[in-house]
């Protein structure tokens, strides 16, 4: 009775390792094209990078700001409610400043991008794979990794930190506004006090993480897109899988990172 279970665990373990290997090879190949491509007259096109940056980054700014602002207000609400018991409401200001810059800003930006762009990228590459557009690229002598994957990786690595900074700012303003109203302080006073406690390293922690999360989202989405098989149902599965996998990997990676960065 145990054998099928162990067998299944073994098979999925092998598949997971295979997939991780494939994702790494996508990354390595993209790096190759970014560095060597221009010398082979096969550059990664700036035009495509810019259009990806628009789709992944710029268009995500409103929703990132909305969610981060709300998250800041929530932190202030919870923080003040809890700290009231200790008569230490004013301590909510450094609390928000630390948690937003180190943790929540980047997490919200990453989850929004995983949901918006992770699914879109997987669906786009997947449908190209299904309609033989990927094969068409290849037989035209245009490497799909250079043409499709490398621009996505570059724009993720540029736009994730930018979105993280937007998220940090929006969350601190959201939290600051609410704290200010409750404690009777102006927003500038709250933000001044926040910046008094913050050091550059706090913000950098979020930025470092955003680079890793951006890379994860890009690789998971692309590898899921390229491995689409089995028609429309397969496409839907790959899209869902790409979102679930990248959010799961982001949260787990966040835990590991935080362990090493904050100790």
């Amino acid at each position: 009775m145990m054998r099928p279970v162990i067998e299944k665990v073994g098979i999925s373990a092998v598949q997971a390792i295979e997939e991780a290997g494939y994702q790494f090879s996508l990354f390595a190949e993209s790096l190759y094209w970014l560095i060597v491509g221009p010398f082979l007259q096969q550059p990664v096109r700036l035009r495509i990078i810019v259009s990806e940056m628009m789709k992944i980054g710029v268009l995500a700014i409103p929703i990132v700001i909305l969610l981060s602002f709300s998250n800041g207000v929530i932190l202030a609400l919870q923080g003040i409610a809890t700290l009231k018991d200790f008569d230490a409401e004013s301590q909510v200001i450094p609390g928000i400043a630390y948690s937003v810059t180190r943790e929540f800003g980047v997490l919200i930006a990453a989850i929004v991008v995983a949901g918006r762009s992770g699914s879109a990228i997987a669906a786009r590459i997947g449908s190209m794979q299904m309609s033989q557009e990927v094969d068409a690229l290849r037989v035209m002598g245009i490497e799909p990794v250079r043409f499709l994957v490398a621009p996505i990786i570059v724009s993720m690595l540029i736009m994730m930190p930018v979105l993280t900074l937007f998220a940090d700012a929006a969350a601190m303003i959201g939290g600051g506004l609410y704290t200010g109203i409750v404690l009777g302080l102006s927003l500038t006073t709250v933000l001044d006090r926040s910046f008094d406690v913050l050091v550059l390293y706090d913000v950098l922690q979020g930025i470092y993480k955003s680079l890793v999360f951006g890379l994860l989202i890009a690789l998971v989405a692309c590898s899921n897109g390229f491995s689409v098989t089995g028609g429309a149902e397969g496409l839907g599965r790959a899209t869902t899988r790409s979102v679930v996998m990248s959010i799961a990997m982001i949260v787990v990676a966040d835990m590991v990172f935080t362990y090493f960065l904050t100790r």
């Binding site: 449908s127 190209m128 309609s131 037989v139 035209m140 002598g141």
Partner: peptide, 29 residues
């Protein structure tokens, strides 16, 4: 890469790039 510039392929359902119009599809190579 050089070899592929000397061959052309017409796929079963065309495999045209869906995001490009007819002219841009032909110009693409």
């Amino acid at each position: 890469h050089q070899l592929r510039q000397r061959m052309g392929v017409s796929f079963q359902n065309g495999a045209l790039f869906n995001s490009l119009n007819v002219e841009d599809n032909v110009i693409f190579p």
